[in-house]
Amino acid sequence: MNLEFGRVALVVLFALIPIAGIVMGLQASALRTRIPILIGVFAGVIPILSLYIPKQFLSGQTGMSPRLDQWLIIVYAFALLLGVVNVLQNSLRRIRRREKGWPFSAVLLTGLFVTGGLGVYGAVSRQGIGYRPDGSATPFQWITDHFFQPLQSTIFALLAFFMASAAFRAFRARNTEASILLLAGGLVMAGRVPLLEFLAAPFPPLQPAAAGASQALGKLTEWIMDTPNGAAQSGIIIGAALGAASMAIRVILGIERGYLGVGKGE
């Protein structure tokens, strides 16, 4: 039996203490809310310590911190199963009750079973879920290539349409700040593309002037992106990082509990 320190410590912190807490929580209800917070404290402190202490038991390949990462993947797999069960429950209910839009649920379940089934078949038949050695696609890969990838691209491409409509509707010079934003946005949009050359294309005599103006506009765009934009981005990134660090400390110390649904703070 491997009784290395990190392994034993993890078992104590994440198995024995919670089990003892649950048992004692049967008598003292306050313990029931404290145990999840305590687990959060352990799970938060270990990676922080491993940032500074490179000892094998803590930060080595099989140390406590990397092992916690692996545990997260295992917990994630079970949670995903929970998600799939939830999809099944909700879709079957909609179909059974013939709720509005139930055919969509039927399509969803068909896709889930066909794709999932082909994935399982690929694993069982040992041909995998990618390409075969001869370069031909397995059925799972075929679905990925011909359904999944084009559908992904399609939804992403919708952005162009929504951007245009949002720009038309929301980009208004309502006040001074909005006007500055509008001007900067307009300049960057014009400066990122050869817009002036495009507009001057039907008028050959104007083309040299358009090319020169386009160069100048490009430089102005670069300055806007580099200086005011860079400064603003730094401000938001540093502010948000501090906010995140403060929130993380609150979570690790058990001060912030809203995410657990066990009270608003202590």
Binding site: V75, Y76, A79, L81, L82, G83, N86, Y259, L260, G261
Partner: peptide, 14 residues
């Protein structure tokens, strides 16, 4: 899926 599990508990508790 993890957010789903946490969100469900939080809403139930609320």
């Amino acid at each position: 899926p993890l957010t789903f599990a946490a969100a469900r508990e939080v809403v139930r508790a609320a």
